[in-house]
Every structure is written in structure tokens, then in C-alpha cells.
């Protein structure tokens, strides 16, 4: 039988991939571009002592927050805690390890992981707690700190559309960390709002080529909660 990347349900798409103490990358910035259908299946599987790499950790009742609440996460590698009270409390109580990264360093570490580059130098964080204990070197008269790649056992990501090959398109700012995480894990599972036939995506318009995608599933949850609704009023005519 020919290889088929399309799975019938979020649970089927994660079948056989989850285990205790694994490292998972999960896409999204705030609540935008989160794999909303896959995360509840990680909760249902009950795997524990997870290391999760994600810019944030969901928000109350949403996204990765439910894995925190279920005490499945041992360590977060993130850039921002924000108003996530549970995240803050578990960390301050010593129940959660946290590695805070500058957001650009986090993104580049993931990109490097996907590109087979074990370390790189950046000016970001030099002279701050972020650079403590890391080699610092001078290039062309400026100091740079060495940062290491990030890789994971599994990436759970959210895209807008996929074809059967796993060629992906993202939508607006829901793209964020998803394309780079797709490159940096041993297995990448993507949930999408639409699976389109081969040929429906112009090859020139593919954001993530299918080589990075192992399993594709249609999203079953597309709540897309808005964190900070900000609007302007129409002026009266």
C-alpha cells in the first residue's frame, strides 16, 4: 500500500507517538495558531513528565494550559508567561521547571534544530541572565553569546490548508512558530482547517514543503479564542 499521510482523527494522528518524558514542540503565539484539536488528545493519553517547547503555555482553559492543569508538563521552554496565572504559580511553587528564552533566540534555536546547526551566536541577551554560563565571543568588535539548537520527539502544529503531500499554507499571523517547529522534530503532526486535493496549492505558494510533515489531520476544534479583542467604531455617516 502506498504511504498515506492523512489520518482520520486527531487521536489516530497521534497514535503510537506519545510516551512519558518526551519532548513536544507546540505551535502558536498566544492563542493564535494553536493545535487546538491535538492538545486534548495529549491530555487524554495521560503521558507525563513532558518537556514542552512553545512560546507561551496557552491561557486559562485553552491550549497547553490544560496539560499544565493536568500536571503532565515537567518543564516549559518558552519566551513569555504573560497573564497565565497557573503557569506562574506552578513555576513559583517549584512544581514546574522553566527555561525562559528571548523570543528571537527561541525561534532561531528551533530553526537551527531543523537545519542541523547545533549552535550559533547572537547579540541578544549578552550582559543579562540569559547569557549566564554560556560562552561569549567577540566578532567584529561586538560580543555575542552562544546558543544551542532545540529539537523534539514530536511537533504538533496548526496550518490553514494542506494537500495530501503535507504541503502547507498558513493564514496571517497564525503562522508564527508553526513552520519552524515542523522542521525540528522527529515526527511532525499537523492539523489543518482544510485538506485540499493535489494541485490545489500552487507550488510557488507552499509555505512548508511536505517533507517536513509526517501526519495530517483535519481539525475538529477551531475555537480560535481571541485574547485581547480590540476594535474601532465606525464613524456615523
Amino acid at each position: 500500500m502506498m504511504a498515506n499521510k492523512v489520518y482520520s482523527s486527531p487521536a489516530a494522528a497521534l497514535d503510537g507517538l506519545l510516551f512519558d518524558r518526551m519532548c513536544i514542540m507546540s505551535g502558536g503565539f498566544g492563542l493564535s495558531g494553536n493545535p487546538e484539536s491535538l492538545i486534548p488528545e495529549i491530555k487524554a493519553a495521560g503521558v507525563v513528565d513532558l518537556t514542552v517547547i512553545s512560546n507561551n503555555c496557552g491561557a486559562e482553559g485553552f491550549g497547553l494550559w490544560m496539560l499544565l492543569e493536568n500536571r503532565q508538563i515537567a518543564k516549559m521552554i518558552s519566551s513569555y508567561v504573560g497573564d497565565n496565572k497557573l503557569f506562574e504559580r506552578l513555576y513559583l511553587d517549584g512544581q514546574l521547571a522553566l527555561e525562559l528564552n528571548p523570543q528571537g533566540t527561541l525561534a532561531e534555536r528551533i530553526r537551527a534544530g531543523g537545519a542541523g546547526i547545533p549552535a550559533f551566536y547572537t547579540a541578544t541577551g549578552v550582559g543579562t541572565v540569559v547569557a549566564e554560563g554560556k560562552p561569549v565571543e567577540e566578532f567584529d568588535g561586538r560580543l555575542y553569546v552562544r546558543e544551542h539548537w532545540l529539537r523534539a520527539d514530536l511537533a504538533t502544529i496548526k496550518a490553514w490548508r494542506s494537500d495530501p503531500e503535507g504541503n502547507l499554507q498558513f493564514r496571517k499571523t497564525a503562522r508564527n512558530f508553526n513552520p519552524i517547529m515542523a522542521t525540528a522534530a522527529r515526527t511532525t503532526v499537523v492539523e489543518v482547517e482544510e485538506i485540499v486535493p493535489a494541485g490545489a496549492i500552487d507550488p510557488d505558494h507552499v509555505h512548508t514543503p511536505g517533507i517536513y510533515v509526517d501526519r495530517i489531520v483535519l481539525s475538529t476544534i477551531n475555537e480560535k479564542r481571541v485574547e485581547n479583542l480590540t476594535v474601532r467604531e465606525r464613524e456615523a455617516v
Binding site: S78, V81, G82, Y91, P102, T122, T128
Partner: peptide, 14 residues
Amino acid sequence: TLKGIGGAMDLVAG
């Protein structure tokens, strides 16, 4: 407060 770093360190450095 524990808000996190976000993009601040990248912005001031770059």
C-alpha cells in the same frame, strides 16, 4: 512579576 522576556531582548540588541 513573571511575565517573561518576549521580544524585548531581541529588539534592544538588534
